[in-house]
């Protein structure tokens, strides 16, 4: 019996447990290298990590493993992946070194294991190193760079390749909303860096139109009524007005709508609420200007709702 058949929120709970175990395992690896063997070297840490990764994958691949062995293998492999990337980055004294290594490890994990939680953790590790590199290197236009992950994630979720890489697609789709809501606003203290955002907005608008066109292509019998047009125009205006973090959450909600995904709907709502709360503290513009912006967005969405509702009622009367 494995954890693959359980609802998404249970897999989240199990993932948190595996992540905590992996953190303790990383401490164990660090203790072995730095305290027991007294090696002050990132390379040694990476070596221990490689041993962890090998052992963890070996356990997970055993056919007759029990639940305990499965969880231990999962945590060991995850800790190993993190130690290899962290160790190599520390050895090179460059965070970016962790990125290609994390991507390579994630690719290996996808090839040799079907454990979705491990695949998710490995993908998240690669994404984490990528974001850390952008922050440490103070990369200009970081918002636009991270936004490039969204279309890839969306495409992979809508048209999955033969080999199931859903966990990586989810990480790619969530990378921008999480980055723009929780990390980018705190980077605005670096005033001399241009964070970008217009390319991200353009990407969100294009993706929104793409999702809507897919939806209407499949539901051609419904036609493109007045309400639907109002909705599309409103969404495009919202993408244009809102900082890209806000429109990213709306995009996830649109994805949830066209695919009928309750987890993504929940996630979109939570991200949008988080976004509004954190937006209060962001320093990109004054509270007064932010208030006007939010009121304008709210008014546009309400007008769209009113037009859509009117069209729905008229449609019901005609039927």
């Amino acid at each position: 019996m494995t954890d693959e058949r359980l609802p998404w929120y249970v897999r989240l709970v199990v993932g948190v447990g595996a992540w905590i175990t992996a953190v303790v395992l990383m401490f164990l690896g660090g203790a072995i290298v730095f305290v027991a063997l007294e090696f002050e070297s990132g390379g040694a840490l990476a070596l221990i990590g490689a041993a962890y990764l090998w052992a963890g994958l070996r356990i997970i691949r055993q056919q007759d493993r029990g639940i305990f062995a499965n969880q231990l293998g999962l945590a060991t492999a995850a800790a190993g992946a993190a130690l290899v990337c962290g160790g190599m980055a520390a050895e090179a004294e460059e965070v970016w070194v962790g990125v290609p290594i994390a991507v390579a490890i994630a690719a290996v994990i996808f090839m040799v294991s079907t454990n979705r939680i491990l695949q998710f953790l490995a993908s998240a590790l690669a994404a984490g190193f990528f974001v850390a590199t952008l922050v440490v290197e103070r990369t200009p236009y970081a918002l636009d760079i991270v936004a490039l992950a969204t279309p890839v994630g969306l495409y992979l979720l809508l048209r999955p390749p033969e080999r199931d890489i859903t966990p990586a697609a989810i990480v790619l789709l969530l990378l921008f909303p999480l980055y723009s809501t929780f990390i980018a606003p705190d980077a605005y203290w670096v005033r001399d860096i241009q964070m970008g955002g217009w390319l991200a907005r353009a990407i969100h608008m294009a993706l929104f139109l793409w999702l809507v066109s897919l939806h209407w292509k499949q539901n051609a019998n419904q036609g493109l009524n007045q309400g639907a047009i109002a909705f599309i125009v409103a969404a495009l205006f919202v993408c244009l007005l809102l900082p890209p973090g806000g429109s990213a959450a709306l995009l996830i909600m649109t994805f949830a709508y066209v695919t009928g995904s309750a987890p993504f709907a929940t996630l979109g709502v939570v991200l949008q609420a988080q976004y509004i709360i954190r937006y209060y503290y962001s320093l990109e513009m004054s509270l007064l200007n932010k208030s006007f912006l939010l009121m304008a967005v709210g008014a546009i969405l309400l007008v769209a709702w009113w037009l859509a509702e009117r069209a729905r009622r008229q449609g019901a009367i005609h039927e």
Binding site: Q272, Y280, L287, K290, L294, V297, L301, W305
Partner: peptide, 25 residues
């Protein structure tokens, strides 16, 4: 139904958040 509710909730929450921000200023 979900989309209609979500649109209403999103519109109302952005508008009300804007009003709260405005008076907090």
């Amino acid at each position: 139904l979900w989309a209609m509710r979500a649109l209403l909730v999103l519109g109302a929450s952005h508008l009300l958040a804007g009003i709260v921000f405005f008076f907090a200023y």
